[in-house]
Amino acid sequence: MKILVVDDEADVRALFEQRFRREIRSGVFSFSFAYSGEEALEYLHRHASEVVLILSDINMPGMSGLELLRHIRQEYDAPPPPAPPQVMMLTAYGDEASRQQALALGANDFLTKPVDFSALKEKLLYLTDHDN
């Protein structure tokens, strides 16, 4: 399963690659990284059919995660294939208003930072099984 992680913190890459090292090595997950909303959209334009899941931070300079979400839902929701990507939002501001806003915009899930990686792993594995 191909996952695109969007966060303006560069070290997120090292963290994900180590946290999911076994899954990456065994080929269960494959990660790509974008450091801004704009970069993520550009990546999606080139690899639209490959990406199954998008994990995006909300607070980023420039295009925010929520705007990215809106763009994705506008561009990729129209059915036939491929199926629209799942989008999970990640934020340090885990209040209810933000959650409601994210869900209203079409997020599939809403996680707060610091990320609970074991819970995330379970969710991702569940999605992979479901996907397959």
Binding site: E9, D11, A14, L15, R19, A92, K113, P114, V115, F117
Partner: peptide
């Protein structure tokens, strides 16, 4: 919060 998360996460990993 951001750097602290990294500290925790990198320690864990």
């Amino acid at each position: 919060q951001n750097p602290l998360n990294f500290v925790t996460n990198f320690s864990d990993v």
